[in-house]
Design a protein around this nucleic acid. Sequence first.
DNA 1: GCTATATGAATGAACG
DNA 2: CGTTCATTCATATAGC
Lengths: 221, 221
Amino acid sequence: MMGEWRQQQQQIINQNLQNPEEDDGVGNGNGGLFVKVMTDEQMEQLRQQIAVYTTICDQLVDLHKQLSAQQDLTGRLSVSGMRLGNFYCDPFMASGGHKITSRQRWTPSPVQLQILEQIFEEGNGTPCKQKIKELTMELTQHGQISETNVYNWFQNRRARSKRKQSMTAQNNAESEAEPEVESPRDEKTKPEDILSFDNSALRAENMYLQSPELGFGNFDW
Amino acid sequence: MMGEWRQQQQQIINQNLQNPEEDDGVGNGNGGLFVKVMTDEQMEQLRQQIAVYTTICDQLVDLHKQLSAQQDLTGRLSVSGMRLGNFYCDPFMASGGHKITSRQRWTPSPVQLQILEQIFEEGNGTPCKQKIKELTMELTQHGQISETNVYNWFQNRRARSKRKQSMTAQNNAESEAEPEVESPRDEKTKPEDILSFDNSALRAENMYLQSPELGFGNFDW
DNA sequence: GCTATATGAATGAACG
DNA sequence: CGTTCATTCATATAGC
């Protein structure tokens, strides 16, 4: 269904765009050549580009659907929409891949996890860079892993351990349980014309899109 | 639902090349390079993707225009499209149901981000006080921001860029013999990869979808 | 199947 | 500046 498709799209997009290439200083986009080196800023731009297109397509299609429903031109237009969907769905599927769909996010193997936990237990909170490197080396033998993974893992582990700890001590004076009902949140409240969803049409569209009943689940391309 | 989708988009957008080393089997065959570049195939894929998106957007936009004209509903699709970039800033993104948490930490709007990235890319390190002041001034027009935010952003950006770089330059333990690649102990090479991007169609699309402020969709490189 | 939870990852801000 | 913390986002999986 739609949701799955989206996921796959995203995965593919991520995959395609996750092409690390650190930039030093070369990237000055002058001289409109066709020959270019991808800096990661550029990658980022591309990523944005595609993401935005994706989103736009999404909303356009949904909007279209909405309009179609209201009208009775559904037949013709709806078909168009479908075709569009297929159209831009297929190329992705065909072009890359199948094996790409694997690693969206690292998951420690049991062995790795055990090792990690063990290190963590030893108390030395933050394994310094060097340690991490070594650790990664070792863990690599038990599965795909990177230093970043290890680093993140420790960060998260610590943070969450901490939070859990403090969470046990917050049960007293818990008279008011719903601190979320308040509305005074002002920060981006400034209805900046470009960045707000104050567009009536779009708002309506969003309402439509966010309605559980009419959500993606029913979306049929 | 939609909110979720937007988040995914945001994720994509935010994904600042992570996990550089991605040494899935491909890496081996390709040679244990430190430097990743876009392969031709990847470029082709990207080109296809964008071209397809462009087409889709075009058609959808037309479709929508048609419908809008017919039923005198909103004719402002372009505006809607524009604001799609606003995922993050939407104050009412309470898809989870009830916790409209106010964000207490600054989050750059897409526009701001782009501007910042641009400045960063120009290479001149962290801007001096004066520059920051000016920049902040400018950025304020695209959303709430403070000098501290700007300063922090540059600090972080640089630090992480650097770390990523050093991270990329490891993990070469099992490098196979690669006759065609250059010296192993090479600093991050600047690959001469070509990115021929005829995005004429894209530009057309941009003309329509692009708002002056929301510079997405620009390949200014 | 759809929501709830656990957790990997991203990032603004703070610290030394 | 480099490193660390805190918060948040997004996804994979478990539970309903």
